[in-house]
Simulated scan of single mutants.
Amino acid sequence: MKKVIETFLNILYPRRCPVCHDIAVPVGQRICTTCRDKLKPITGPRCYKCSKPLAHGEQEYCENCKTTHYFDQGIGIFTYGSVLRESLFQLKYGNRQEYGVFYGQLAAYYSKNQIRCWNPQIIIPIPLHKKKMAKRGYNQAEIIASALGKELGLKTDIKTLQRTIYTNPQKDLGYRERKKNLEHAFEVRGKLPWKNILLVDDIYTTGATIDSAAKVLKTAGAEKVYFLTVGIGTDA
């Protein structure tokens, strides 16, 4: 009966492909068969710290991770290229919230072994400031984190870590400007009950956002802070 209902809903409200944004073909699939090959997870050598793809196998760290980070380790699932950039833009600004569920489920599939090794107690999505949340109506990181957590059997918390300062968009800023932009942007509300935390966001470029959140969490008592993002930049 459940399968019949799902089939009916897929016909009535067909899914959009996150790559081409048309109705996914065949109907009921999450991504078009012809588009699947355009969205491939990262393979090959990666930075040991942030997981950015590296040009040379003998490298251990990307240029950005030669400096100190507050997070312990992280993983990005896809390279943040043109296909993913447009898809995440539609998720964030085009109200394609179903893309967040799709990416959360896919991230769980590709990262489950790594996350089990980290053994986090909780998943915390990077929060939006209340003004941005009111304007957009949803937090894309929260949607991704919720879908990821459901797949892996991990709880998600959206109350403890809060964004208290409205910051300028990060995309047009350099690394130092990004860090300065995020100073004091986050705070922990109440007592932090977890020692091992997984942060989730849609994109990792310089790591300034993740680092700022990780710093606040560690100041509040966290011992290990890891991260997962759907997209990640390449080595500088």
Rank of each mutant, 00 (worst) to 15 (best):
C35F: 00
R30M: 08
I31A: 05
I123A: 13
E58F: 03
T219Q: 14
K155P: 12
G44Q: 02
P45G: 06
T206R: 04
A134G: 15
E6N: 11
F102P: 15
T156A: 12
I42N: 04
A208Q: 08
A107R: 01
A145K: 01
C47E: 04
Y61D: 07
Y175C: 10
T209Y: 01
F8Q: 06
D201T: 05
A220K: 06
A134F: 14
T209F: 01
P18I: 00
P26L: 05
T33A: 06
G149P: 08
V83H: 07
K155I: 05
P45S: 03
E223V: 04
E86D: 15
G233E: 10
I123Y: 04
L192E: 08
S51E: 05
A222I: 05
R163I: 04
A222F: 06
R116P: 08
K49P: 12
V216W: 01
T67M: 07
Y204F: 12
S82W: 04
K130Q: 14
C117E: 12
D172P: 14
V225R: 02
G81M: 08
K159V: 03
C65L: 01
V25G: 07
K131M: 09
T33G: 06
Q121M: 09
K131G: 10
L39P: 09
V19N: 03
A220I: 02
Y99I: 04
Q140M: 13
I210M: 13
G233P: 05
G100R: 06
G57Q: 05
I5E: 14
Y109E: 15
N181R: 06
P120N: 02
I144S: 10
Q162D: 05
G231L: 08
Y204P: 15
M133E: 15
I77D: 05
Q59A: 04
C47Q: 02
E183P: 10
H184E: 14
R163A: 09
P45E: 02
L192P: 10
F227H: 11
G57R: 03
L217A: 07
I232V: 07
L54C: 06
S51L: 03
L161P: 10
